[in-house]
């Protein structure tokens, strides 16, 4: 079984971009998707700390402590970029002005619930902007690994961890599969190359509908 690499996940995420999209990319794999924007396509990246039009990482001599992304990494700005306050940033997020949001998660369930900010007694990260993003955006893709390294499914009937958002996730991309969430079920849409439907079924704890045709991802 060949799970997708981080870069391949990012590449599949980038296939959801459209010319003229304003996109918010979460920390980690979502951020990598910026490297796979097709030539000739204009996508404006929103960074929730108050930047629309985030560019590449700076050259060594371009580094500016006053210019960072939501992951606190130094970045640059593209021509046409704009800067604003955190209140304005979340007004555009909450107001539904961002076309696509991509973020990570610990668990997703077939009711569209997402858990991503804490594991009681073990890990407290905080939600940062994730709760606002999942509540404010209509078009959200969650990227995550399908199962833990112990083989426990992260795609559940009911999330076990504290929720980041309720009934808000409609599309999940894992290292094994692309799935939609409809009417309380996961619908298998695409398989990672070399991954069988059986592999996916085995590692999906939540209710999963397998259509007759499940094409391989085109990477």
């Amino acid at each position: 079984m060949m799970a997708l690499t981080r870069d391949q996940l990012a590449q599949r995420v980038a296939q959801e971009f459209k010319h003229g999209y304003y996109v918010n990319l979460g920390i980690g794999i979502p951020t990598l998707a910026a490297n796979f924007v097709p030539d000739g396509m204009d996508v404006m990246l929103q960074s929730e700390n108050g930047l629309l039009g985030m560019g590449r990482f700076p050259l060594d001599d371009e580094v500016d402590a006053d210019l960072i992304n939501a992951g606190k990494q130094t970045v640059t700005m593209v021509p046409g970029a704009s800067i604003f306050s955190s209140a304005e940033s979340f007004a555009m997020i909450r107001g539904g002005h961002v076309d696509l949001t991509v973020l990570g998660a610990f668990e997703v369930d077939c009711q569209g619930n997402i858990a991503s900010y804490m594991i009681p007694g073990k890990l407290i990260k905080g939600m940062g902007g994730a709760m606002d993003l999942v509540a404010g955006a209509d078009n959200i893709i969650v990227t995550m690994t399908h199962a833990s390294k112990h083989g426990d499914s992260k795609l559940l009937n009911r999330c076990t961890l504290p929720l980041t958002g309720k009934n808000c996730i409609k599309r999940v991309l894992t290292d094994l599969a692309l799935m939609d969430i409809e009417d309380g079920k996961f619908i298998l849409r695409e398989r990672a190359p070399g991954v069988s439907v059986e592999d996916i079924v085995k590692l999906t704890a939540g209710e999963l509908v397998v259509p007759d045709e499940v094409p391989e991802m085109n990477l």
């Binding site: 929730e48 306050s85 955190s86 209140a87 940033s89 979340f90 997020i93 909450r94 619930n113 939600m127 940062g128 902007g129 994730a130 709760m131 606002d132 509540a135 404010g136 504290p162 929720l163 980041t164 958002g165 309720k166 009934n167």
Partner: peptide, 28 residues
Amino acid sequence: PQGTLAEKMRAGGAGIPGFYTATGYGTP
């Protein structure tokens, strides 16, 4: 939540005692 925190401060400075938001509904 980050956006709620920003808005709580904005409201605090603008004489608005509270606001309704979908952020955090159904969560802790």
